[in-house]
Simulated scan of single mutants.
Amino acid sequence: MGAFGKDFTSLMAFSRYSDNQWQTPSLQPLDDFKLTPASHVLHYASTCFEGLKAYRWADGRIRLFRYRDNIKRLRASAKALCLPIPDEALLDTMIKQAVLAVESEIPDLPKSLYIRPTLIGTETNIGAAGRASSEAYLYIMTSPVGDYFSGGIRPLKLLIDELNMRSTPTFGQVKTGGNYAAALSSVIRAREQYGADQVLYCPQGNVQETGAANFFVLKSKTLITKKLDGSILPGITRDSIMQLAENQGFEVVERDFTVKELISWLPESEAFLSGTAAVISPVGHLIHNNKTHAVGNGEIGQHTLAFRKQLTDIQHGQAEDNNSWITVIS
């Protein structure tokens, strides 16, 4: 198995939207499909996607983790982008169809099957800059994956960026490729100039998130993260961690906070990123105004590791699912 997200299964689920309706979904070989050079998505970025996982537990049966939340978020993204909105039943059917069609290709634990539902505008009209695409493709491809950290989990180094925004103020909540593209150049510069792994966007000194993950600070028994105000992604892993923390007696605080506050908390805190692919990524250092600040002792925090284990144990069937997050599909 190659690097995370580079290997794919043999089949994908596919549906086309035209004449104001979605076609009955079908299974297709994971191969090239027809897309004209004038397609709406190639000119006006009418695209959104999701990321979730399926797991083969020790009993051989396949489970999905919180997939209905991914359905809800994809529909919200489609609405924000003025794309045809797939109904919940269609997305539910296609996700299960895509996974079950390649059941024999799903690896055993601790590996998993990464699922990528994708929606793109396909109308052939380069004059449609001011209106929505009337045609679309919805497809769901899958990728057998191992641990996101090929060399083992390690504390990350983040560059604090107080000048740039990851996204527009109300569009950060949309899971669209444009947000990732907008963050890419600053992430590359941070890596080249500072040896940073990621950029923590803090426009006007207000802490938001990184280019691809939500950001948490754990200070004593208080877990702090930015509130959902449209500028950051409503992460499903984010929400899962918050629920686990509350269940264990942590105070969970969603609020705006500043770089100044963040720097003052670091000596006695832990920090981490959350997302589907890596689950939890510990943060060891933050770079601000050319000065490097350690988070705690700069190593992986014990609570960070504990949250990661708690969540993956639920996903792998090694801990009780008290929140009804797991769905059996085979």
Rank of each mutant, 00 (worst) to 15 (best):
G296D: 09
T168C: 05
L244R: 09
A78L: 12
E246S: 13
S186P: 00
I224P: 14
A213T: 11
D69K: 13
G317C: 06
L158Y: 02
A196Q: 09
L100P: 01
A196W: 14
L27Q: 04
H316R: 14
R75H: 01
Q97C: 13
Q173F: 05
A54D: 00
R238T: 08
T276V: 05
F49T: 03
H43T: 07
E254S: 12
K34G: 05
G177K: 10
Y114R: 05
P84G: 10
L156Q: 11
K6Y: 03
S167K: 11
P203I: 01
A58H: 04
V41I: 04
G172A: 10
P169M: 09
S281A: 15
P29L: 06
G146V: 14
T36R: 06
Y180E: 08
T210C: 06
L30I: 01
M12F: 07
A89V: 05
F65E: 02
V199H: 01
G5I: 04
L273C: 15
Y17H: 07
L27N: 01
R308H: 14
Y148R: 10
G298D: 06
D321W: 00
A45W: 01
E246G: 06
G205I: 14
D7V: 08
K72Q: 11
L286Y: 13
P282N: 05
E299T: 13
V283S: 01
I188G: 05
G121T: 11
L200D: 02
L81F: 02
Q193G: 00
V252S: 07
G296L: 05
Q23E: 12
K6V: 05
S104N: 13
A38C: 08
